[in-house]
Amino acid sequence: MRIALFITCFNDTLYPATGRAVVTLLERLGCTVEFPMEQTCCGQMHFNTGYQRECVPLVRRFTEVFAGYDAVVTPSGSCAGMVREYHGRVAEVSGDARLASAVQALPEVYELSEFLVDVLQVTDVGAYFPHRVTYHPTCHSLRMLGVGDKPLTLLRAVRGIDLVELPAAEQCCGFGGTFAVKNSDTSVAMCADKVRHVLDTGAEVLSAGDNSCLMHIGGTLSRLRTGVRTVHLAEILASTEEKPATDGPQPSPLPRRTTEGVRSR
């Protein structure tokens, strides 16, 4: 089985540790992972902001780079969703029939937890992560891809983990790509509620399957000096006793003040 890693431009630039964790994890599970160097971006930011024409070359590149693989794995629910739901639409917009058939012929693109549970059929990946963790099911994983409780099934099997339920978990964190800046007041208000729920769990780590949402919630956790770290699902699953996850996203600085500031927002 030829497996390609689609790292996403976002992880490539900002969260390479997540990509390294995916490679570590999949190799530990006996897979050979390839990283096609010509890959760039799925076009989600352009598409979701209304720049569909600008998406066309990105989608074309995607189809060329990943043609011929048996499966594509990506540590991002929203980028997997973009490819699966909307690459066909971009091809339609382009009016290029060859692009449309190339999109049709693309190998299946899996979000990491789907690949592990559905394709590799493992739920215990042999991870060890002795921390109190709460999990935010990102909107696109949950509702666009329908990953259900696959990520939680994987996390429950991690040794040493103290997994605590996040209240109102299914509510959006308010990121929404360019929404976070175009409608920053609303976005911040939504994130304040998410952060309050995270703090209510007493978790030291917030995990999710999308670094974009983690960047958003983590940016607020960090600004408020809560001390809660954000760690991508892949990094928890890659972590073992011999090789703990150490190079994940930086923990936010130690608490400077209590969480009261958040609660009263």
Partner: peptide, 17 residues
């Protein structure tokens, strides 16, 4: 619009690629 309420991540020293 981002950083008024949220910290921003620092791009990694070494990208994945």
């Amino acid at each position: 619009a981002w950083t008024d309420a949220r910290d921003a991540p620092v791009p990694a020293e070494e990208s994945f690629r």
